[in-house]
Design a protein around this nucleic acid. Sequence first.
DNA 1: ACAATAGGGATTTTT
DNA 2: TCCCTATTGT
Length: 721
Amino acid sequence: MNLSEITAGLNQRQLESVTLDISHNSLILAGAGSGKTRVLTHRIAYLVTQKDIHTDAILAVTFTNKAALEMRERLGVLLRRPIQSMWVGTFHGLAHRLLRTHYDKANLSSAFQILDAQDQFRIVKRLMKENNIDEAKFPVRKIQWFINQQKDEGLRAQDIDAGYNYFIKKGIEVFSLYEAHCRANDLIDFAELLVRSYELLKNNPELLEHYQKRFKHILVDEFQDTNTVQYKWINLLFNNNNKVFCVGDDDQSIYGWRGAKIENITKLETDFSPIQTIRLEQNYRSTGNILAASNTLIANNSNRMGKSLWTSSGDGDLIDVYEARTERDEADYVVSTIQKIINDGSAANECAILYRSNAQSRVFEEVLIKYNIPYVIYGGLRFFERAEIKDALCYLRLMENSSDNVAFERVVNFPTRGIGNATIEKVREFARDNHTSLYQAAVQITPNLPTRAANALSGFTQLIEKMSDDAKHFELSEKVAYLLKESGLVNHYSNDKTDKAGSKKDNLEELIAAAKQYNHEDDSEMNEVVGFISLASLDSSGDTNAPANQNVQLMTIHSAKGLEFPYVFIGGMEEDLFPSRQSKDEPHLMDEERRLCYVGMTRAMKKLSLSYAIKRFLHGQSLYAYPSRFLDEIPSEYLNKIKQKFGATQKNYRDDDIFNQDIAPESSGQLSIGVTVKHAKFGYGSVLNFEGEGDSARIQIKFKTAGTKWLIASYANLEFV
DNA sequence: ACAATAGGGATTTTT
DNA sequence: TCCCTATTGT
């Protein structure tokens, strides 16, 4: 294969990146929409076809299954050969592969199970209860969060110094209990996959050496999202005879709150020195105005590596900024605008509505329904995270391995079969005292129980035994179909009154389809059932439903990362919502909010529209808000500020005239700079400045105690003193 | 054992 | 407001 096939269609910088000297480490700082994945895939193709690097000598890591899959597909096409054995995958997926291959050296049994966030929560909660730790003082969520945070840093309970912090002290206590529990039960949570595989390599020098020698080229996507363990993992595999090729964008780091270390990208320059760096700054996605606005916004951040996107396409439209009165008004505006776009001949799926938090989706959803525009909301529960799917998988797990305690706990009395808490507690106690599995304990204590409980419990254990015997030689999908019936799950969900649409039953059907589609070849380290169950944990998307076809797309900005849409609407551009309230006191958190805003804006190809509501109903109450500071940070030359609703929609959709009834316009005409005013909440202050007139006039006031603020005159209810 | 109700909490979530 | 959990009543 000749070079031109690999380099066709690349621009100068991309070409340089792909063909960088392979005897050096490389860092590609790739801005939004600059062709980052393209560079990474073509680089691999270049290594394989031009530099005779064997595909087995390549390790390519991404963050999402989607990205990994996409890379595999593109590579297959570029190389024109199957690549199934290649190590291309997510950090978690590859770590999992290592642990399955070398489970004995990682102090695991071959049957170890992966805990997802829900399972982990349940276990932490149970442990806290058993040890009389007050959940009111130490919320389970916070403790779980604490444990994961430590693991993301590569720390274990014994490595942490609590100092005088009582919460951390308790956190460490629960962490230790949790660690012991997981070790005893062969359980691995997401963070543990990484920590454990790191330790596996670290503690087994011959193994480490083997992989260091094998992986001559290590390629990492989205490097700004790596956390401390992931960084250490890469660093460990690196031995200076192999080379790294990292792609990332510090401006798009939005997972700091989950342990991602934006600094890792800078650390590359010292830890992997010498490293060749190339910046990809030509953007192929957005118009000039959108890019210019995004550039100016992000320039407000400190500690950037520095990068400025440009485009050869024209300025395009200005960015619309709509001031809505309420979140309903905002949704009306956004959806009516989308209606116009559709009427003008665009497809609904060219439009995306993005927001900071999921709670904002509901109003948009309501209005979209009213307009009869099809939509999909991304986020929320994924396929394999749904309760009914997890129930079914737990039966599968018990059939495969009856000593799976997590699975036992979940389905022992589901569907309900008369096994109460008291009985289960006895089973737990027996298991604890005799160091046996819950299932074994149940079998053994049954004779000693009151008849009613004994019958119920033996009903369950015999069911599991029968099911695993019957299905022993079934195909995977037959096993699933069989278990759904036999366990009573299908029956239970068929009679479920709360599930009117029958979607839970449909999901169970879908699980059979997923089992049919499962391709076992890729995971030959495991048997088929274990492989399928692991996939369910590691790739919760299920990917079976929700195609974007002809639907307006609704999602958080976080989940929009990596995507692009011709028309993008970002709602809720308000202080305390975006940027989030919880981030406003910490400069580094505020910077991450700004990056998030940058990510959102740079999703737009043709047209970007921002909006904010002056009054928003959130968490059961109405709140007044100020426009987001991010709006002020964008020069107005790129903006088209709109304060009026569309005439057409006003008639149709202002059926409930909520806007005016509880807002008393205040116009005392005595307004001038220097005047003293009184505000109900902020107290006394003096007017520094004002702008605009009528309802939308804004006044800047310096309060004696509350600081300086811009207030909307008509809502501030100011008293002139 | 389970259904009905009251109380508390509430970003973002690649795996 | 909505959702999840803990408690109460049958």
